[in-house]
Design a protein around this nucleic acid. Structure first.
Lengths: 191, 191
DNA sequence: CCAACCATGTAAGCTGTTACATGATTGA
DNA sequence: TCAATCATGTAACAGCTTACATGGTTGG
């Protein structure tokens, strides 16, 4: 049990991508170039060092590709799969909601690889709860002593955050509905 | 004209705070502790080095406080004020909208210090335009080849970003209205 | 043969963080 | 005098970026 070192956010992203399909560093760069994934740079200086770190941590391994040449494919190890699953299952808390929303959404996107639809459901439930909690905190701030002392500009800026959080909460409810609709085609879970 | 080096985001934040009122590093830390400003750590290891960098760049200066002891106040220099004003007046582009929204909102909050209400208005106009542009870009992505190939999870994740951007755009329109209402009490600008 | 793309990497640096360290002042 | 708070700072590192560097392959 080699208690693998925690991967970085970018590391988990790469782990998720090679878990979906083993691929080369170059192919991974193309993903970052062509999709709004994370918001990470697709430059080689970002991707290759991150892959190397994952390899060193024993979370991915590289295989020589069939095509020959120096080309190589990255694939997750079993430790990598396990740690990725752990990452995915983390509940969403208010702190993550406030400061690492991008990472939280990234995690949600990768929940497609969890065979248990209950994990996605739990994720969205905790997401929505954390969002409303954060919204209440911002409302309390605006209504409190410090908040009332703010200028209109500052209040509006905080209000922007509040509106975005509310939008996120509504999104979670809607996403849960959409995933539920999809699930109904197959089986049924306790509500 | 000593072309002062550009401050960092945290640097501009501190610059804005000392512009509002010259204060000590400790007092600045308290602001970060008690308000959702930026999302910066209030730890001394964040604030003091940043202040030192601003001082080195000639954007703030320190004065010994009246109270005696080692206590000192930071205040903006004229170069600091000038550069802060420049920072404030930057138009909002889609790139900033997508990747540095926090910083953009921070700038808006500090626009309270610009005596010309037209700057705030222009800011919100470009903000709204950039938001809708970003929304259209995400819509185009979802409707495009790459987007349609995504799993429901991934589509929902992108959809979250889209909803947030729309929320931001609506906020800008509302904020403009609120600032306009306030302005009507005073004078009138060409519409 | 040359341009375009495939493919991989290193070096240096920026921005900010946590953890550590220190000392003065104030009030119970 | 002892704890809490005021007040300032450094050291080490994390995580990512840009810029640089290199070479293979493929097609016109």
């Amino acid at each position: 049990m080699v208690a693998a070192k925690a991967a970085t956010q970018l590391g988990y992203t790469l782990l998720g991508l090679v878990l979906a399909k083993p691929q080369s560093g170059y192919a991974l760069r193309k993903v970052f170039e062509t999709t709004p994934l994370g918001n990470y740079s697709s430059s080689p200086g970002s991707i290759y060092p991150a892959l190397k770190a994952l390899e060193k941590a024993g979370l991915v391994e590289r295989r020589s590709a069939a095509g020959g040449g120096g080309k190589q494919l990255f694939a997750p190890t079993s430790a990598g799969e396990a740690q990725f699953g752990e990452w995915l299952a983390r509940p969403v808390d208010e702190e993550a909601m406030a400061r690492h929303l991008d990472g939280v959404l990234l995690r949600f996107a990768f929940l497609q690889f969890d065979p248990d639809p209950g994990v996605s459901r739990d994720f969205l439930i905790s997401f929505e709860a954390a969002a409303w909690a954060r919204a209440r905190a911002l409302e309390a701030f605006l209504d409190g002593e410090a908040g009332r002392a703010l200028s209109l500009h500052a209040r509006l800026a905080v209000g922007h955050g509040l509106e975005n959080i509310r939008s996120s909460a509504r999104w979670a409810a809607d996403a849960r509905r959409q995933l539920g609709d999809k699930a109904e085609e197959g089986n049924d879970d306790e509500g």
